[in-house]
């Protein structure tokens, strides 16, 4: 059995080389600075920054969160400082720390996405761009871009046009659609280098006292371990349909085994989101645990297990020593 130290965690994600497959999820790590108290952010696969919009944005009224079984609802409303402040202060900090930055952008019109792509695309220190398309489209009666394959593809096309070739563009998909593979195919055809999945799924909580919705924004995005099976299913289905498209698996990842499960379902890398709120040290803990999970199953690299679950069990790279390994 290879010792955990010998496991090669390096991954190639749509042409960018990462030291390990564990990233932070957008909106759950700000721009990395606050997490620096808990671990060195440069040790992460990458930091995915909070989705940034063109202008400063105050977000939704409070309460903005409700705890739910093994998860939470949030309705932050993309509060942020706007692109100027982000490029002037937050991105340079990540570059100084030598952390890999994946910049998440969000807009409410195609024009805003294009402008953001130009600004981010011409900035140094951007490893990749992640496009948050779970935003209402002002020009289409507020329908969320991610829920319409045609609109989703248009966003990706305008972003791709303005981001330099060497910088991959990831489309972040919403699970709240009937034909996920259809949306995935549309954004890949429009030029997405890969897919980040999943964003939160819409939920609601009722306050037992007032018998009214808890959240100021009424509905909110559900995240955390509660959505992990849903996220795994999404990754599985899309990898099945498009095995060559790089996928970033996201949704309720809490342990190294959870990360491994996403890799074998077809993800090349993973993002850790809500669990950071529970355990700020989680991303680097998960890196160490993933190393152990691979090593005890006699794997020598993370890259070799990507999509493994899609091959019949008898043909799989069988673990040599299954002692102590049980279905979690």
């Amino acid at each position: 059995m290879p010792s955990p130290r010998d496991v090669d965690l390096r991954v190639d994600l749509a042409g960018i080389l990462l030291p390990n497959p564990v990233m932070t999820a957008s909106g759950c790590a700000a721009a990395g600075r606050e997490l620096d108290a808990f671990f060195d952010v440069a040790d992460l696969g990458a930091v995915v920054t909070k989705s940034i919009m063109l202008d400063p944005r105050a977000g939704r009224p409070t309460p903005r969160m409700a705890e739910t079984p093994s998860g939470m609802l949030n309705s932050i409303g993309l509060q942020g400082p706007g692109i100027d402040s982000f490029l002037g202060q937050e991105l340079p900090w990540l570059a100084r720390r030598r952390a890999r930055a994946v910049v998440s952008i969000a807009g409410s019109t195609l024009g805003e996405y294009a402008e953001l792509a130009r600004r981010v695309g011409s900035s140094p220190g951007v490893s990749a761009v992640e496009v948050n398309i779970s935003c209402p489209n002002v020009a289409n009666r507020g329908m969320v871009f991610a829920c319409d394959p045609y609109q989703a593809a248009k966003v990706i096309a305008v972003v791709r046009r303005d981001v330099p070739r060497g910088v991959p563009v990831f489309a972040k998909l919403s699970p709240d659609v009937t034909d996920l593979v259809g949306v995935a195919e549309a954004v890949v055809a429009a030029g997405a280098s890969g897919l980040s999945m999943i964003n939160t799924t819409l939920g609601l909580a009722i306050d037992p006292g007032t018998l009214r919705p808890v959240l100021g924004g009424v509905t909110g995005g559900l995240s955390g371990p509660a959505i992990r099976p849903l996220a795994l299913r999404c990754v599985w289905q899309v990898h099945q349909a498009m095995p060559d498209v790089p996928i970033i698996g996201i949704g309720g990842i809490k342990t190294g085994f959870d990360a491994l499960a996403f890799l074998v379902a077809g993800a090349s890398t993973v993002q850790v989101g809500t669990v950071i709120f529970h355990d700020p040290g989680a991303p680097m803990r998960i890196v160490a645990e993933l190393r152990d999970e691979l090593s005890r199953r006699a794997f020598t690299s993370a890259a070799q297990v990507v999509g493994l679950a899609h091959t019949p069990a008898t043909d799989s790279l069988a673990a040599t020593d299954l002692e102590g390994l049980r279905t979690p």
Partner: peptide, 16 residues
Amino acid sequence: EEAMACGIGVCMTCVL
């Protein structure tokens, strides 16, 4: 005392 999801400044839940 505002409801907080992360307590460390990364989530934007606790604003006023």
